[in-house]
């Protein structure tokens, strides 16, 4: 598949769509994991579930951060409309990356299934 140019308007929605997918995955994954194999409450926050969610969060945030950087580069040397689309996309990717980290941070300290 041809690579999607970084000035394509689809980038305006890809970032937050990825965020949404990640969000649904961690919420759904947590619910299913807690229904299927809840860890003992004594384990606290250091469970397989937390680690898996944390890794997924970090990976998603890294991907989004990279896309933000790429769009920002693309915005640099473009005129007018292309610059507009790339710059707004970069902002949206950045926001999505920060939102991923911010929403995901509780996996560090909160036990999963209580």
């Amino acid at each position: 598949m041809r690579r999607l140019a970084l000035t394509h308007p689809l980038h305006l929605v890809i970032g937050l769509t990825l965020w949404s997918l990640w969000f649904v995955t961690i919420y759904g994954g947590l619910s299913v994991a807690c229904a299927v194999a809840p860890p003992a409450p004594e384990q606290g926050a250091l469970t397989t579930i937390n680690v898996a969610l944390g890794l997924l969060t970090a990976a998603t945030a890294a991907l989004l951060g990279w896309l933000a950087w790429a769009c920002l580069q693309a915005a640099r040397d473009k005129p007018g409309r292309s610059r507009f689309v790339a710059a707004v996309s970069a902002g949206l990717y950045l926001y999505s990356a920060v939102a991923t980290l911010f929403v995901g941070i509780p996996v560090i300290g909160v036990p999963p299934c209580l």
Binding site: P41, E42, G109, V110, P111, L114
Partner: peptide, 8 residues
């Protein structure tokens, strides 16, 4: 919130 949990 965490202190309100029914932990052991």
């Amino acid at each position: 919130g965490q202190r309100m949990l029914p932990l052991p």
